[in-house]
Design a binder for these strands. Structure first.
Length: 238
DNA sequence: CTTAATGTTCCCCA
DNA sequence: TTGGGGAACATTAA
């Protein structure tokens, strides 16, 4: 469900409501994103670490539902932060550090990105999904970035010009998606229950059979790295 | 009934 | 050592 833009949107919607308030008795000092992880720091030194997996939601002052897994109290009875998760792939636990991941795609420079890419030989889609390579991209934004960069998902050993194009496409698509508050395909909502709108601007993800916006060739769906992969067979070459 | 779904991890094999 | 495939986790919807 949540990739970098969705997690960033949740963090931004959560921060003003949580900072300065008490969460399970601890004063919240910061709400941060680390890749797809949400980190809520407290003055007590404890950090609530949340990964939403595929269907997780963090909701402020929402009613308990059938998939509510944890309820965190705010200010002794003056509100709640709910952790909901249909498929239970996610986690919301105190003081469990996330693993060390690769650089943030919005912070890495073009030169650093090119250098990082040079050290890997695998298919570009697999690489972009690997959180120890770059942190925050998932299946939607990988497909959307590769389309914008006109690179085939199974391409390897990208030339410098193609790698530069890819870096630019990643930054562009992530920033645009954040501006549109993420993509709501099936489950995603922010901490106030609001859906994002970037799904309306997707160019390939979930568009199998529909005409490519550039060349009208039908968008193809295949499987790469065990994930549904959407691309234009004419515009995106290896 | 079967398949696929915004994710991660672990195991096996080349 | 690196990378790829498959399975597992759990639930819902088409």
């Amino acid at each position: 469900m949540p990739e970098l833009p969705e997690v960033e949107t949740i963090v931004r919607s959560l921060a003003p409501s949580l900072i300065g308030r008490r969460l399970d008795g601890r004063l919240v000092t910061a709400v941060r994103r680390y890749g797809k992880y949400i980190l809520i720091d407290t003055a007590a030194g404890d950090t609530l670490t949340v990964h939403l997996g595929m269907t997780g939601r963090l909701l402020l002052d929402a009613p308990r539902g059938p998939h509510t897994r944890t309820v965190f109290d705010l200010d002794e009875g003056a509100g709640t932060l709910l952790y909901d998760d249909i498929r239970k792939f996610g986690r919301a636990v105190w003081n469990s550090s996330p693993p060390v991941l690769g650089p943030d795609p919005l912070s890495i420079t073009e030169a650093e990105f090119l250098d990082l890419l040079r050290h890997h030989r695998s298919r570009i889609k697999s690489l972009l999904l690997d959180q120890s390579f770059l942190r925050g991209l998932g299946n939607i934004y990988t497909d959307e970035a590769l389309f914008r960069a006109a690179i085939h998902p199974r391409a390897r050993n990208l030339s410098a010009p193609r790698a530069r194009r890819l870096h630019q496409a990643i930054v562009e698509v992530l920033q645009l998606a954040i501006e549109h508050r993420g993509s709501s395909i099936s489950d995603y909502v922010d901490s106030e229950g609001r859906k994002g709108t970037f799904q309306l601007l997707h160019r390939v993800y979930g568009k199998e059979g529909q005409p490519c916006l550039n060349c009208a060739t039908p968008i193809r769906r295949t499987v790469v790295a065990q994930r549904g992969t959407h691309y234009c067979p004419k515009c995106q070459r290896r």
